[in-house]
Nucleic acid binder design. Structure first.
Length: 554
RNA sequence: AGACCCAUGGUGUAAUUGGCAACACAACAGAUUUUGGUUCUGUCGUUCAAGGUUCGAGUCCUUGUGGGUCUACCA
């Protein structure tokens, strides 16, 4: 399909289609993802990444990765590596080398001089507090700085001396000369450069003046000849300045388009607060499986494909959205149902004895690895007189017709094995079930059942003598409220879920002893799980990715 | 208070740009099932309000109402 025949899926693509039709930029589409390397990428960034890369891909364009590193005090090289690997994990490769706004410091400096020479920028020694009060207020015009009308020559001299390091931090700034009465506060002579005698993670001690976001981001877009600069809604007001600078500087006219950020129930996406969770020890790190970071979601077992699908299917709009966890989890199950092999593990084991099965006998039973994908083949399971089943799959009293599990006098199918008849149980002094007793129908073996016995329910089980212990980390959302940040009177920490992590020891079939880190599988009837990096030889550790849906109201 | 942005089922998005409101998730009901999973079927809205333009408005205009953003030498 040629790009001319493509249909717009959202308002950004409509703009692109129009630009393409008008032959703008020779039909070239170039986007960029511009993270600040001062933290880990989270689910919100995933949305921006997907929009930028997928939009460009759809129209045969390219996407740059650019570190927005104009503030030497907050940015670190450590984050650069994590950002790059997270983007690759999500499934995207950017055009050429990773770019850095700091690579353009020389250009930016020249741009500043150009503005000064045109009489569109001036050096101001007003203090931060003075500049703030000059700003005026919403609906109230500001006042001109007393230094606003210096000559270009004087400004140039002062700015060059700023760059040369003659002045201390905070003593002077470079400001654009626009309009102190502008309704958009951002255009009331915004600060373009500040003095910071600080080493930068890439340029070292080369600079003691650093550009601010508004004098770096748009200019970097222009230098890279980005055609469509996609960003989130809160930058709407910056667009006026973005465009003013393009005109004043007479540089490549990138176009900024804003879309709404994506919020997801039970997830927070504030770098500061995410860091707080780590620093306070509420989670084990940035990659804790309860975190909204890509590192956390990956560790929890969320497939990159599911995250991509989620970001794409939730659309691109200009209105704030609050996505449900339901949809994200649906996307995760959708991928895992197709890809994850099935295994049996009992999370809350209770011993079940098949009293008429020969003692000391073990037989091997065949079972399919993935009913959704025959190519995954089969494997063998050991079966004997003593097995483990889920405690919750047993009721002490006989149950009604709608109950398909174990209870006295009930018949139940053991997955890929036999149908058993429940006789009853044994219990301790406190009434806890210590053992379930059953008999089996020898002629009901899976695949060759001639018993004629009908069992409505099928249970998962694990052969007791060969069971392996598995550490299972069961997760719930980190917060008890879907939008913990939306309470004016309460702190988000008030909503921490005390049950967000529960560690249990499960009994698993032998094959589970050798799972590889990051491998996902389904524990039959329970959910999807993935092998955690904390696993050690013979001591598997597994994370709950997402539970299976259940329509049973037991 | 000024400027700007937004408003479609419980939730999130569509609607050939003015022509019978569609899809997904959730929920509920049923069918299939050796996972109470998967799959399949059905049920659940006249588009924030009022006025206007028009043969015809979710779409255009006006006025409201509600929500959001903006006054860092952060990005």
């Amino acid at each position: 399909m040629s790009t001319a025949e493509k249909k717009a899926d959202n308002f950004i693509e409509e703009i692109i289609l129009e630009d393409l039709a008008n032959g703008k930029h020779g039909g070239r589409i170039h986007t960029r993802f511009p993270p600040e390397p001062n933290g880990y990428l989270h689910i919100g960034h995933a949305k921006a990444i997907v929009i930028n890369f997928e939009t460009a891909k759809k129209f045969g364009g390219k996407t740059n990765l650019r570190m927005d590193d104009t503030n030497p005090s907050t940015e670190e090289t450590l984050y650069v590596d994590n950002i790059q690997s997270d983007i690759r994990w999500l499934g995207y490769e950017w055009e050429g080398d990773t770019r850095y706004a700091s690579d353009y410091f020389d250009h930016l400096y020249q741009f500043a001089l150009r503005l000064i020479d045109k009489g569109l920028a001036y050096v101001d020694e007003s203090s931060a507090a003075e500049i703030e009060s000059q700003k005026g207020d919403i609906g109230v015009p500001g006042t001109n700085s007393p230094h606003r009308d210096r000559s270009p020559a004087e400004n140039r001299d002062l700015f060059e001396r700023m760059r040369a390091g003659e002045f201390p931090d905070g003593s002077k700034v470079l400001r654009a000369k626009i309009d102190m009465a502008h309704p958009n506060l951002l255009l009331r002579d915004p600060v373009l450069y500040r003095i910071k005698h600080e080493a930068h993670h890439r340029t070292g001690e080369n600079w003691c003046i650093y550009p601010l976001y508004d004098f770096a981001h748009g200019q970097s877009d222009s230098l890279e000849e980005i055609t469509h600069s996609l960003c989130s809604l809160e930058f709407r007001h910056h667009r006026d300045l973005y465009n003013w600078l393009i005109e004043a500087l007479e540089i490549f006219p990138s176009r900024q388009i804003e879309f709404a950020r994506m919020n997801v129930d039970y997830f927070i996406t504030s770098k500061r607060r995410l860091k707080l969770l780590v620093d306070e020890g509420i989670v084990t790190g940035w990659d804790d499986a309860r975190m909204s970071t890509l590192a956390g979601l990956r560790r929890k077992g969320y497939p990159a494909e599911a995250i991509r699908n989620f970001c794409m299917d939730t659309g691109v709009t200009r209105r704030d959205s609050q996505q449900t966890l339901d949809l994200l989890e649906y996307k995760v199950r959708e991928v895992l149902n197709r890809d994850a092999d099935r295994y049996m593990a009992v999370l809350d084991p209770v011993r079940l004895v098949i009293t008429n099965y020969p003692e000391g006998q073990t037989e091997m039973l065949e079972t399919e690895n993935n009913p959704e994908n025959e190519e995954r083949g089969t494997r063998e399971l050991p079966f004997s007189r003593e097995i483990y089943v889920e405690r919750e799959d047993y009721r002490k009293e006989p149950q009604n017709r709608k109950y398909f599990r174990l209870a006295p006098e009930k018949d139940v199918r053991l997955k890929s094995a036999y149908i058993i008849h429940c006789e009853g149980h044994e219990e301790d002094a406190d009434g806890n079930v210590t053992q379930i007793n059953c008999t089996y129908y020898p002629d009901s073996r899976s695949g060759e059942d001639t018993s004629g016995v009908k069992a409505k329910g099928t249970l998962h089980w694990v052969n007791a003598p060969t069971a392996v212990d598995i550490e299972v980390r069961m997760y719930e959302p980190l917060f008890t409220d879907p939008t913990p940040m939306d309470h004016e009177d309460r702190d988000f920490m008030d909503f921490l879920n005390p049950n967000s992590l529960q560690v249990i020891t499960a009994k698993g079939e032998p094959a589970l002893a050798e799972g590889k880190v990051g491998e996902s599988f389904q524990f039959l009837r329970k959910g999807y799980f993935t092998v955690d990096p904390d696993s050690r030889e013979g001591k598997p550790v597994v994370n709950l990715t997402v539970g299976l849906k259940s329509s049973w109201k037991g």
